[in-house]
Simulated assay, not measured.
Amino acid sequence: MNDFLRPALTVVGSINLDITATAERLPSPGETIGGAVLRQQPGGKGANQAVAAARLAGRSRMVGAVGNDDAGRHLLEAMAAAGVDTRDVARVDAATGTALVLVDRDGENQIVVCPGANGEVSVSGVAFAEDEAVLCQLEVDQAVVLDAARATRGYFVLNAAPAAPLIPELLERCDLVIVNETEYELIPELKEARLVAVTYGKDGAAIYEQGQRVAEAPGVPVSDVANTIGAGDAFCAALVLALRSELDYGSALAVANAVGADAVRDPSSQPALKPLEHYIEAAIASR
């Protein structure tokens, strides 16, 4: 696809330092598990999506906030190295957001998030172009997400995670909402939403228009799962980019499923990915 046009994507959302302990299994309440391996890595749903978009399409922009601390500096450097424009990431006095993550040998996880600087994210003074797609999540204040939706002049997408009741105006302004099957059930107003993409893990994904299933794509089998944390974020970025590249719903879902499958094979929350063209060509060839 030599004439492939790289779409623009701006992500407004969270930036976290992930402190991850990987163990044979997840502990039960009150239980202590030994023998885990500890590491720190960049994370946050917003940053994960911005990095995935940059790796897929060559460029993306991040709007968020980090602290004036070593963690914030490290996270900004990591995003910039991946190809993310970080000029609209504020440096604030609060501590950089942190996520405490437990992962078992199958890649399943438990996460506790300390939002820190993510509580000070703002889109004040940020300009959005008509050809820009804007992707938000719910790890920052929903009022900020609504501000971003109001300011968006192009295509506005909400990854409604973690699940929460949605401000009616916010839902009305969404061109697309992306959720997993649990979030879809926890947010009943999505049943009547304009356009909703729902992921079903190994069973693939589907798109609904006002509650009617209009497209689907099967899951991609993965036998070597390393980490599931960044897979949903990579799926979100890939789906938006694929739809903005004028793929039909089914092909766009197939592209996003393939990207998500690659993501779970990588132990990082911000996995290495191939260019979007690779996944598009593979999806088209398989249909």
Rank of each mutant, 00 (worst) to 15 (best):
residue 61 R to I: 01
residue 175 D to S: 13
residue 43 G to H: 02
residue 13 G to P: 13
residue 73 R to T: 03
residue 194 R to K: 15
residue 269 S to H: 07
residue 61 R to L: 02
residue 195 L to K: 15
residue 156 F to L: 01
residue 128 F to C: 06
residue 67 G to A: 02
residue 84 V to D: 07
residue 201 G to C: 10
residue 218 P to G: 11
residue 121 V to T: 08
residue 21 A to L: 10
residue 46 G to Y: 07
residue 84 V to I: 02
residue 123 V to K: 08
residue 26 L to A: 02
residue 269 S to C: 14
residue 62 M to A: 07
residue 108 E to I: 03
residue 114 C to V: 14
residue 213 R to T: 00
residue 211 G to F: 01
residue 201 G to I: 04
residue 283 A to P: 10
residue 111 I to S: 07
residue 27 P to K: 08
residue 210 Q to V: 07
residue 257 N to D: 04
residue 230 G to P: 10
residue 65 A to K: 13
residue 90 A to S: 13
residue 151 A to G: 13
residue 31 E to I: 01
residue 155 Y to H: 14
residue 140 V to R: 05
residue 268 S to F: 02
residue 211 G to H: 02
residue 286 S to R: 14
residue 130 E to L: 13
residue 46 G to C: 04
residue 73 R to I: 00
residue 220 V to M: 12
residue 99 A to N: 06
residue 171 L to S: 10
residue 31 E to Y: 09
residue 269 S to I: 02
residue 116 G to V: 06
residue 110 Q to M: 01
residue 52 A to Q: 12
residue 117 A to S: 13
residue 157 V to I: 14
residue 170 L to I: 05
residue 142 Q to N: 06
residue 152 T to I: 05
residue 52 A to Y: 07
residue 70 D to L: 13
residue 111 I to Q: 11
residue 257 N to K: 11
residue 87 R to P: 00
residue 225 V to T: 12
residue 287 R to H: 15
residue 124 S to Y: 00
residue 226 A to W: 06
